[in-house]
Amino acid sequence: MNAPPATAGRVATELTRHPAIWIGGVILLLFIVAAVAAPWLGTIDPQRIRPLTRLRPPDADSWFGSDMIGRDVFSRTVYGARISLVVGITVALLSVAIGLVVGLVAGFVRWFDGVAMRVMDAMMAIPSILLAVALIALTGASLQNVIFAITAAEVPRVARLVRAVVIVLRERPFVEAARVVGTPFVALLWRHVLPNTLAPLLVQGSYILASAVLIEAALSFIGAGTPPAVPSWGNMIAEGRAVFQIAPHIVLFPGIALAITVLAVNLVGDGLRDALDPRLERR
């Protein structure tokens, strides 16, 4: 697991050897740019209601058509990327940060290990969407609560992963040696433990990003996600449900955007996994 230091040249070689990373990365980057630059991409106010142009199919003027109250589906889809990406990226960062702390402490402090891992096991036994639904039913539907609920469901996976890495490292001679010569605990973590958790965390983090985007959309779809007024992809699909047979474009455009985003993140995750774990790749 002690990879040679990452130089620009080595990164470039890895990227050409794993096209999934840059294909996924480029698509993801395009979505991020679109989300940030949403107001300048030929969009109009995603909330503007135009009763006269209800259920209009896609054409040259309105690229993705309009929904049942005349809102522009293209504008809503572009703005929807903001919600999905904010939720996905925030949940990934938060779960990795919290899971890292829990996993590190569990890996080094024996009494905490038993308790924490029993709780993590139990949390993983609760299907993630249902755990999120229960939390949101108690706290109310808002963007923060959605992020909090999905993070709660994802933390155990990171904590277990970090703990597993730490337990293997703990017994390795170089960690023992560092301890014997009196390296302060924080320095031990910083120099020897953290670098070894980086690769698996990067891979796990990208899978969590994908899963968070999916769960947010599913939560919004079943009415336990972002508030109805917010143009999120899950909300759009839920609203288009009733008129799906006569105006499928209302459901399909956000649905396809959602699928492409998740696919791009999964591609990056798979590519990173192959690049960072040569043992798996050669299979």
Binding site: A259, V262, L263
Partner: peptide, 22 residues
């Protein structure tokens, strides 16, 4: 497999309805 893993169940559901039913 990667594609199947990325297609949200509800999006796939609507695609299937559109093709096989509608």
């Amino acid at each position: 497999a990667v594609l199947g893993f990325s297609l949200p169940t509800f999006v796939l559901g609507y695609l299937l309805i559109l093709f096989f039913s509608v």
